[in-house]
């Protein structure tokens, strides 16, 4: 299962109004580490379909949100809960390290 995309137009509904935790992966096509971490996030999504929703946000196409959330380094993964940022993970990491960072949401 590939993570779905969110955009400035749908962010409010997809992320801020969502019931469960939503991980937003801020990425861009030119970012090598983003391409590396994408399949890892897909796996985590596939293995935890009911616990967390993982959405991709292209910073080139949605610069307003990149600016709003003060993104200066990608990949940046922010977990939103109840409309607030609960956790921020910066940089591509191996799956087991990401799972540790996300442990509270994958229980």
């Amino acid at each position: 299962m590939t993570a779905k995309a969110t955009t400035s137009a749908t962010f409010e509904q997809d992320v801020l109004q969502a019931e469960g935790p939503v991980l937003v992966d801020f990425w861009a096509a030119w970012c090598g580490p983003c391409r590396m971490v994408a399949p890892v996030l897909d796996e985590i999504q596939a293995e935890n379909p009911d616990k967390i929703t993982i959405l991709k946000l292209n910073v080139d196409e949605n610069p307003d949100l990149a600016m709003k959330y003060q993104i200066t380094s990608i990949p940046a993964m922010k977990v939103f809960q109840g409309g607030e940022v609960a956790t921020t993970i910066i940089g591509a990491k191996p799956k087991f390290a990401l799972e540790q960072d996300l442990a509270e949401f994958l229980k």
Binding site: W30, V59, T72, S73, I74, A76, I90
Partner: peptide, 17 residues
């Protein structure tokens, strides 16, 4: 401040500056 202005990768993060 890593990821908030401190970076080790210009090709990854230059875009934001």
């Amino acid at each position: 401040l890593s990821g908030h202005g401190v970076s080790w990768c210009a090709t990854c993060d230059g875009f934001f500056f």
